[in-house]
Design a protein around this nucleic acid. Structure first.
Lengths: 131, 131, 131, 131
DNA sequence: GTGGTCTAGACCACC
DNA sequence: GTGGTCTAGACCACG
């Protein structure tokens, strides 16, 4: 379970942690019953404030992705995979819709948008890295 | 020249002003030589502080979209239309790329992404309003 | 006697007028006894406010470059050519000194500055137009 | 990291701050990763308003010379040294060209300009102080 | 503690 | 009237 933090990209650190855990769940790197790292341990590894880790976990708890196990720590819930997989597709859909609205405000035609999309998609290598 | 401000959408007010002026330039609502509303007038119309308008205009000046005409006001530069039209297409392209990278990190296949896109595009009415 | 005004270059309009008259005197385009255009005429030709022309002339009077001739207008003084020619050389010397001080603050060596100067001088065509 | 402000030299205070930081970067007094003084601290030291410092920093951010580190402060970017060093040489070159154009408009010969330059250069002590 | 944003009001030079 | 700058003080999210 590797988490990478970039404190200079404008995204809140707690949000970066939460997102990466959700991705790990969606991609079955983390499975129901697995324990996430303890607040103190993760904070130490990332050299950040424990409060920041705690906040990330608080948000994940609110979304029912992790739950406390008394005396043990925080574990991935049974519902987590479905929540995360649905969420990721909805996220992409929402982003696409936003871009299309932006394009509409810019008065780009449907054809122009499609051309831009196809050009970018042809460079899409399904790895998450820009090619 | 209509500008609408939504103080609760998370976007900074000065940014909303700057964006709408860029759109107006890209869409030929504002043309080179046209004067933008004076700082005080626009501030009064939008019921916001003149400093906020001034900041928006300062950013537009830094991007060479408007320039001061001594004692007269701020006018659209001759280079503005090209700058704004190039910028808007680059913005859309960048956003599409980001979404595709996000999709890659979520391990969606190229086919899945294309289906999502086509579904959203079919609802795209080229007006900038979600349908 | 041609005067060109650029209201968008940051220089005050009255200053542009005064400078161009001084150049005209230094270069013998205007000679002692010549009349400068009347405030109203020049303001009309340049499509600017007569106050702005009046201010330019006021400054030139303070520098003894023009003087009022009752009932006639404003004429170039006998002392004007010497004043303007001395001023132009001093101006250049002052500017060079400023650039050198700026270079010193940037810790450029004397050799580096000389190279930059020689390169620019080689493009210098003595016409006042960038080549 | 010493910054000196002269509120009476015509230069905007925010600009003086930005310039001095750029010089410090170009001269390796500030290096990538170093934090600039916090907005509030610098404002207190210089006895000026925090907004003025913030504006200076905002301009430096726009030029990619500093970047925010969430909750920590503003640090010098890795690209900053190159940006600042290129900028300072280009600035000197631009200034020299302006002076030469001015000289051309004054109909000074190439030889006269060179004499003026050599005379000033002989007094140039590479410290940034007029001798 | 940090930066980011906004408001309110002042003074300046210029037209 | 115009923009440009600065001060004073507030509120926010983040760590």
């Amino acid at each position: 379970m590797l988490i990478n933090i970039n404190p200079t990209n404008g995204l809140a650190v707690y949000d970066q942690i939460a997102r990466q855990i959700k991705f790990a769940v969606a991609n079955r790197v983390l499975r129901p019953g697995d324990l996430v790292p303890s607040v103190r341990e993760l904070a130490k590894n990332l050299a950040i404030n424990p409060n920041t880790v705690a906040r990330a976990y608080r948000e994940l708890q609110a979304e029912q992705i992790i739950q406390t196990v008394r005396g043990t720590g925080l574990e991935i819930t049974v519902a987590a995979p479905e929540i995360c997989r649905n969420a990721r597709q909805e996220l992409i859909r929402l982003r696409l819709r936003e871009v299309l609205e932006e394009a509409g405000r810019s008065q780009l035609s449907r054809t122009q948008v499609k051309q831009l999309f196809d050009k970018e998609l042809s460079q899409y290598d399904e790895t998450g890295n820009a090619s």
